[in-house]
Design a protein around this nucleic acid. Structure first.
Lengths: 210, 210
DNA sequence: TAGATTGTTAATCGATTAACAATC
DNA sequence: TAGATTGTTAATCGATTAACAATC
């Protein structure tokens, strides 16, 4: 499979979502132009992205929708299930635990962990919340590779350390904290502050010009 | 104030967070090197970013921590309060409504909206949840400019349209949907599927090489 | 065949990095 | 003064866009 840049990789699920959304009564073929227009991208970019992960479309016809969906799902690994655990069973943590949509992406959150007496021992949509002390053992036993951090920032680094020790290789970090991890471990920050900065900058520019 | 690229803008809150985290007993001065090492960035990048938004540091000394914090907060508008509303009072919506941390960024969620009988009429951390029909009137009356979408994808575009009609200029979209809005309105997608794609790609690469 | 659409090669654009002069 | 650290100008790098040949 070809090399795919970070930017391309992030667009692929967007293409897939669009293709699936039109699939029910959908056209047999879809052109790069159609996709580009629907998603406010350029035709050329869509073609280049798709060239990297599909066997290619046919001139004058476009891509076979069904095959393209298939290729995207293959490449993104949506058909394999990745088990994950989540640390921090506050409101955000519980919201993610009970979100049904992740199944579509092959993400399966198997359990939550916390240290508070209130949370530990309860369930969230049938998913158990254990004490943090039991995390390593469960991760090892179940071969968990993905960890999600929804704990307060002060604990984030310690949790990340614990995750690394438990064999986790990819961390999805919702805490406003920079995490230090070994090279083979990837951290993806869901950086709310960055998003807010972009929103609020746009706002101040808009209001300035009026 | 200088032009600041999207990438720089997204890093600024990270610098600010670091500076604040060390401020209590913190050093009077902070160098670009210190910041870069703490955040796994390069010195040069930090300097260039900071040059755009501060009066500058002093050779051999670095930046005056207190002033730098001040400049960053000014630039990012953390001292002004931006009121916002949120549509979709499910678990994620409620989690965001009750998150105290947004205050630090100058974001103030004033109310939630939903259509379900269960949610409408209730409170979340003292913030009322109204019926969606009342959104436009409240936005107009309170001059709301920021809207947050935490509703199912199927409703996202209709909600966005309603937000635009209500005078909202910046939309923070958590729904897995592409939104069409006028040019003067900015959409920031919190694209979970993109994050998962990056995590899962890393994982498959790591597991392949072992 | 004609023409729409693909994939690729080259050009452009913008962000990051390097080199270096300025200065406390 | 010497040397650490700043800010700026130039070089590099990578992603996007444009141009165009290939083809169904």
């Amino acid at each position: 499979m070809n090399y795919v840049s970070r930017q391309t990789l992030e667009r692929l699920p967007v293409y897939l979502r669009f293709l699936k959304s039109q699939c029910i009564d959908g056209p047999i073929n879809t052109s790069a132009k159609t996709i580009a227009e629907a998603l406010s991208l350029t035709e050329i970019q869509v073609r280049k992205d798709l060239a990297a992960i599909s066997d290619g479309g046919k001139p004058r016809i476009g891509y076979i929708t069904k095959d393209l969906i298939n290729d995207l799902e293959d490449f993104l690994g949506y058909k394999d299930v990745n088990d994950a655990i989540i640390v921090g069973a506050g409101k955000l943590g519980k919201a993610l635990m009970s979100y049904k949509g992740f199944a579509e992406y092959g993400l399966n959150i198997v359990a939550g962990f916390d240290t508070s007496d209130e949370a530990v021992g309860t369930d969230e949509e049938g998913k158990p919340i254990f004490h943090l002390d039991r995390m390593e053992e469960l991760c090892r036993r179940m071969n968990i590779r993905i960890g999600i951090i929804t704990a307060p920032a002060d604990y984030a680094q310690r949790i990340a350390d614990k995750m690394v020790k438990s064999g986790i290789l990819a961390i999805w970090n919702f805490a406003p904290a920079h995490l230090e991890v070994p090279d083979n471990v990837l951290v993806r920050n869901e950086n709310m502050a960055a998003s807010l900065a972009v929103l609020s900058k746009h706002l101040s520019e808009q209001l300035m010009n009026s």
